[in-house]
């Protein structure tokens, strides 16, 4: 059975929650079972945010992830906080422009991608989350590039649809790494 339990974590404002929404929506468009659960606790006031996204071929029992198959991190504190929840053989995808800390685990696959730097070079640092999602998609095949693009149309408000071609470029960039 194909199932991904994905935790995305970083600072508020990096598009952590929206990246999760786009992912979950794309999964739904492929007729998979999905759930998206944001952190809404007091830790948000300190500026960190995270969300749990489950995409599965079977109905999602609990939307709360205890064992993540993939962790995407966009700040140092989140790596420290969440690296232990990744399953053996799982993935950790790191924005290395922002996270200097090394992963302590030896039993997981780690990808360090300078996503914020790459996105900044593209002209919009907010695409960093999309570049990291690109890596996730290429590595796991949990959703297709086309569903991702379709999902953007659903999640983004119409006035932001002009960004879609660039976001797809960012995704492809992440996929090719």
């Amino acid at each position: 059975m194909i199932k991904q339990d994905i935790v995305i974590a970083g600072f508020g404002g990096q598009g952590i929650l929206s990246a999760g929404k786009v992912l979950a929506n794309a999964g739904m468009l492929e007729d998979k079972y999905v759930s998206w659960l944001p952190s809404y606790g007091p830790e948000m006031r300190g500026g960190t945010a995270n969300c749990h996204v489950v995409i599965s071929e079977e109905p999602v029992a609990s939307p709360i992830i205890n064992d993540a198959t993939t962790l995407i991190v966009m700040n140092g504190p989140s790596l420290e906080k969440f690296e232990d929840m990744v399953v053996e053989g799982g993935l950790i995808i790191i924005d290395s422009s922002l996270v200097e800390t090394e992963v302590k685990r030896k039993d997981v696959e780690v990808f360090r991608i300078p996503a914020s730097k790459m996105a900044d070079d593209m002209g919009n640092v907010t695409y960093a989350n999309i570049i990291l999602l690109g890596k996730l998609i290429a590595k796991t095949g949990i959703i297709s590039k086309d569903s991702f693009e379709e999902s953007l149309k659903k999640v983004l408000p119409a006035k932001k649809h002009y960004m879609i071609p660039e976001e797809v470029e960012a995704l492809k960039m992440g996929m090719s790494l």
């Binding site: 739904m28 079972y33 759930s35 998206w36 659960l37 944001p38 809404y40 999602v60």
Partner: peptide, 10 residues
């Protein structure tokens, strides 16, 4: 509870 209220599902 907050899980149900805050989560998104189809």
């Amino acid at each position: 509870d907050g899980i149900l209220g805050q989560m998104m599902e189809p």
